[in-house]
Computed example of a mutant assay.
Amino acid sequence: MGLTNLNSTHLSSTKITAAQDAIALLESALAEITINLSAADRKKYGSINEQNKLFVNKVHDYHQSQPNLSSPEVDWNEFYKDHSSRNAMETMISKLESIITRLNNAKTLHDFDNYQSALDDYSYTAYKAGTSAVGFEDKFRDLKQFFAKPTPPESSSKENKEEK
């Protein structure tokens, strides 16, 4: 018998509802700032790479420590708001990505458990169908379609032989 029940921890319906409510609340809280960029816009504006983040942070540091060296043409209040927002968003994204990774891992184990149990049930169904137990033959035929081997396409060499 293979490994089963790799993840036997399940959220209660109350916790599922609470998580769904929290996600809805998060979506609502972030609605005013979330923007749907087109593929062209994403390509145009891109995402600054690590080197450019270091550059922005260095400019930020210079403006904080030696503001007299900063350009008067930059709206520094907006610069700070952008910098603060991007840092807050980066932290939120990191936390959300971690949650998503952990949810995907838990789901993967539940998927595996479901599939193994379904295989066990299919084996049992095949056994019972072989004993002509009522209903099992129909169930077996219905499930068997998921294990049908694909038929290979007609070979062209056969056609070539027939043409000669």
Rank of each mutant, 00 (worst) to 15 (best):
G2S: 15
T4C: 06
L6Q: 12
N7E: 08
N7G: 00
S12K: 05
T14S: 15
K15W: 03
T17K: 15
A18C: 06
A19P: 03
Q20W: 05
I23F: 14
L25A: 13
L26P: 01
L26V: 09
E27R: 15
A29M: 10
L30Q: 09
L30V: 09
L30M: 15
N36Y: 02
L37P: 01
A39T: 10
A39S: 13
A40M: 08
R42V: 03
Y45T: 05
G46Y: 01
G46K: 07
S47T: 06
I48R: 05
E50C: 07
E50Y: 10
Q51M: 09
F55E: 04
F55Y: 15
F55S: 05
N57S: 08
N57G: 12
D61I: 02
D61W: 02
D61V: 04
D61A: 14
Y62W: 06
Y62Q: 14
H63Y: 06
S65R: 13
S65V: 08
N68W: 04
S71G: 05
E73A: 14
W76N: 02
N77V: 06
F79Q: 02
Y80F: 12
H83M: 08
S84C: 10
A88C: 08
T91E: 14
T91L: 11
M92Q: 15
S94Y: 06
L96E: 04
L96W: 05
E97T: 11
I100Y: 04
I100C: 09
T101A: 11
L103C: 12
L103N: 10
N104H: 09
N105R: 05
A106Q: 07
A106C: 04
A106F: 00
D111A: 05
N114Q: 12
N114G: 07
Y115T: 10
Q116A: 08
S117K: 08
A118Y: 12
D120N: 12
D121K: 06
S123V: 08
S123E: 07
S123G: 14
Y124C: 09
A126F: 00
Y127G: 06
T131E: 10
T131Q: 11
T131N: 08
A133I: 06
V134M: 03
E137P: 00
K139F: 04
L143E: 05
K144L: 08
Q145C: 00
Q145H: 01
F147S: 10
F147G: 09
P150L: 07
P152G: 01
P153E: 02
E154I: 15
S157V: 12
K158G: 08
E159Y: 13
E159V: 07
K161W: 05
E163C: 07
K164P: 03
K164C: 04
